[in-house]
Each structure stands twice: as C-alpha cells, then as structure tokens.
Design a protein around this nucleic acid. Structure first.
Ligand code: NAD
Ligand code: NAD
Lengths: 207, 207
DNA sequence: TACCCTTTGTTAAATTATTAACAATTTTCT
DNA sequence: AGAAAATTGTTAATAATTTAACAAAGGGTA
C-alpha cells in the first residue's frame, strides 16, 4: 500500500462511520454494494478503495465489518490518538463540541478557547473553556495537534496565527474568511454557502 | 460556455465570497494571483475558471471586481432567487440560520421546522419556526426549493422523505446518516468528522 | 524606439479519479 | 456433477481536473 488518493481517504472515513453503525446493529459482514448504497457511490469504487488499503473480503460473503473498521483505523488514526482544540464557543462551536463529544476515541476535543470572560473557566459538553491568552501554554501541555476555528470571521487571521505559533499541525477553519498557514500545516476549510450555492446551481440548471 | 465542471462551480462560489469582501473594501480590480492567494490555489486555475465562464480581464490591470461578481451571480443565482428551509432548530440549526441570515439576497432561509412544541411559532434570527407537520403546506406556499437537515441522525430518513414528498429540489444534509433521495433531487452531505479525520491522516503521514 | 516585465487567455500535457470489463472463485440449485 | 448466479480483485479504459507552457498584449523605461 503506497499513496492513498485524497478522495480515498475521505471515503474511508465515511465507510468507517457507516460500518460502525452496521457493527452496532450486529451486522458481521457487508457487501461492496451495500456500502456503495449507503454512500451513494458505485460498488466498484468501494472495492477499489478497499483493494488500495490491501484488505481482502470473502467471496460471496463480503467484508468482515469489524476487521474493516480496525484496518481503516490503522490507516487514519494514530496509536495514541490526536488531541483537538476548538476556538470560539458560540453557536457553531457548541454544536460542534456537542456533536463530537464521545464519538471518537482516537480524536478528542480536549480544550476550548474563547475571549469572552463569561465563557472561560466553564465547561461545554464536558470540554473546558480557557481564555484565549492561555492557548500557547495549553496546546503545548495537552499535546494538541489540531485546531478548529469557529470565531467571528474578523478574528480568524489573528486566531490562525496564534494556533500556528502554538505549534498546531492541522487546522479546520469554519469561518468564511480564508486564512493563510505555512505549508507544513494541513488546512481544511468549509463553508455552508458554497454547498448551498452548488445546490442552487444544479437545481437551476437541472430545471 | 457549455458545461462548467463541478469543481469550477464550487470555486466560483468561493471567488465571489472573496470578491464581495474586496468590493466592500473599495478594491475595483484584482489579479488572478491575488484571488489565487486568497483561495490557496494557483493563478492558472483562477484564469482557467474565469475563461470557462467567458469573462475577460484587462491585461496588466486584472479583472473588474464588480463585473466578475455580477457574472458569477448570473451563473449561480436564479433571477428571482431560491427559497430555503431548515429542519431542526437545535445548536447547529440555529448556528446556520444565524450565519446565513442577511448574507445573500438570492438565497434566503424563509422557514424553519421542528417537532418540539417549545420551538414552533417562535422566530430564530428572524426565521419563523413551524411544526414539522406543516412542512408540505409551507414548502408549497412559500415556493421553497432547498432543504437543510439538522435534526438528530435518527430522524434524518423520515425528514428526508417528508422533504422529498413536499417537492423539494435540493437537500443539504448535515446529519451523519447518509440519506437516500430520487435522482432528480440534488443531494449534498457534509460531516465534520470526515474533515477532521482527513486532517488527522495528513498530520500523521506528514509527521 | 527597442527592450523588458507583467499579466492575460488558451492550448497541450500530465495527473488524478472514476468506471468498465472480466477472470476467478464460491455457493446454490437442479 | 454441472450449470447458473453472485461477488471479489484487478487491470485496462475513460473521464475529469490540474498544471505547464507559451504566445499575445500593454505598459514602463532606458
Ligand atoms: N462554515 C459554516 O458553514 C458556518 C456556519 C455557521 C457559522 N459560521 C461561522 O462560524 C463563526 C462562528 O459562528 P457562531 O454562530 O458560532 O458565532 P458566535 O458569535 O455565536 O460565536 C463566536 C464566539 O467566538 C468568540 N470570540 C470572538 N472573538 C474572539 C477572539 N478574538 N478570540 C476568541 N474567541 C473569540 C465569541 O466570544 C463567541 O463565543 C463565524 O465566523 C461564522 O461566520 C460558519
Ligand atoms: N455535519 C456536521 O458537521 C455536524 C456537526 C454538528 C452536528 N451535526 C448533526 O446535526 C444534527 C443536529 O445537531 P444539533 O447539535 O443541532 O442537535 P440538537 O439536538 O441540538 O437539535 C436537534 C433539533 O431537531 C429537533 N428534532 C428532533 N426530532 C425531530 C423531528 N423528527 N422533526 C423535526 N425536528 C426534530 C429537536 O427538537 C431539536 O431542536 C445532529 O444529527 C448532529 O449529529 C452535524
């Protein structure tokens, strides 16, 4: 197994999410076309992705759900797990913490930061909120490697810089303001408006 | 201008978002490399996208910001605009309404739905919340064509079906449960965990 | 004027991603 | 046993996307 395509990594994450649900329902084996149905893709693509990670199913029986979950874990997760911090405990930040909380063992939100004194020193869905000035210290002490940005757009550049200076390795930016990071840092950005506008375009052109 | 690639549509939406900020700052012209810098892509890609939509800049002066905004609008937006509904007024739903509110003229969230009686008949960031049972009626009356799903994952299939039966044209699903829709409906799904796991993978392999 | 620099627009090449095709194997059925 | 059906694994083909290459044009400047 050499270089996994970007898109394959995304799909593996999604397969695992679906597989965990199957496992919870007591399903022991799954066919490529079942995974495909769930993810709205083709069975060939599923088989190809699984081939790329070197896993082999059983003919006419499909893939062993638990084995596949474990293997995807070996690829995506690190042994000790990675710690995550979230900056900005507004509506979106709270939604994210709340959603994430307790979902993953290998990826955990261990700290929150905010500048509003009403929020610091409180816990949100079990995650303690610190003042933004403590960021450098906490990120180092808690060995945090990923930061999620959910502050107002105007504060994004400043927060990004703080995260970078604190030694973060990856950033997920939810503000509509694109931020700049050194190339060693992996940056991912998401904005709902792009998703909606894409839908709008296809609704329009398909009409 | 024939078929615009999927990816180009996404980027056009992002360009416009950035261009609107530039316009607000009073910037009249912009170079391909400036747009590229903001979006973390190459200037060639920007020029190519702009070529595909048939716009032409001025040599050594760049693109006219307002013209480009307008043209992207012509491509993505419909003349009268599209109406959007959001289902599930929890943390995430409120974050989304609040973010979206007042941002776009051509795309507006005109109704919210929830099953919790404490939430119906109230307004959230200016959007009125109706009971889920009124969905069919309101979607037709208000001419809503896009639905955003932010209910608990378990309720996603049922809500999807309701939206489909109400005649919705496009769906943006934020629950971690992939849903099924007829092929005439454009579906977009987003899950933060995929983003985070992708970051985790690249942080791990780049280390 | 002649030359250099910048920046666009476009075609061509390279890369990445998806889909198709099909052999191989196991199970089921007759 | 033999035929039919289902399903995986893999290679080959196709399609989509990005990147490179470069000509053309405008402006600055010696
Ligand atoms: N990408 C998306 O789809 C999407 C959706 C909704 C919102 N958003 C964006 O996410 C961000 C947060 O949205 P929200 O609704 O949670 O906003 P919010 O105003 O509710 O929350 C912002 C939080 O950040 C804190 N904050 C402000 N300045 C800060 C600073 N300098 N340092 C640390 N903390 C600071 C505030 O105290 C507040 O708690 C906004 O930028 C919004 O535009 C993005
Ligand atoms: N994609 C992402 O990145 C992301 C992030 C956070 C949360 N989520 C998901 O988004 C969803 C909402 O998250 P949240 O934190 O806002 O949850 P929440 O519990 O705060 O809100 C859910 C809302 O849906 C309403 N609801 C429940 N059942 C309903 C039904 N049958 N019909 C109509 N309304 C109903 C509830 O009354 C509540 O208001 C969850 O599925 C969560 O997993 C996704």
């Amino acid at each position: 197994m050499k270089h996994l395509p970007h898109k394959t990594i995304e799909r593996l994450s999604q397969y695992r999410r679906a597989l965990l649900i199957c496992a919870a329902k007591g399903k022991a084996h799954i066919f490529s076309h079942e995974i495909a149905k769930i993810q709205h893709i083709t069975p060939v693509q599923v088989r190809r992705d699984i081939m790329l990670i070197g896993y082999t199913g059983t003919l006419r029986k499909g893939y062993n759900v638990q084995e596949l979950i474990d293997l995807i874990g070996d690829i995506i997760d690190t042994k000790e797990g990675l710690n995550v911090a979230i900056v900005g405990i507004g509506n979106l930040g709270r939604a994210m913490i709340n959603y994430f909380n307790g979902k993953r063992t290998k990826l955990s939100i261990v700290a929150a930061f905010d500048s509003n004194p009403d929020k610091v020193e409180r816990a949100f869905s079990g995650v303690k909120c610190y003042h933004i000035d403590q960021m450098g210290e906490i990120i180092k002490n808690e060995n945090i490697s990923i930061g999620i940005i959910t502050v107002p757009a105007g504060a994004a550049p400043e927060i990004t810089e703080k995260l970078v200076n604190s030694g973060i390795k990856g950033i997920l930016n939810f503000t509509p303001k694109p931020v700049n990071v050194p190339s060693r840092i992996y940056l991912e950005e998401y904005d709902m408006i792009t998703s909606l506008e894409k839908i709008a375009f296809f609704v329009k052109t398909h009409a």
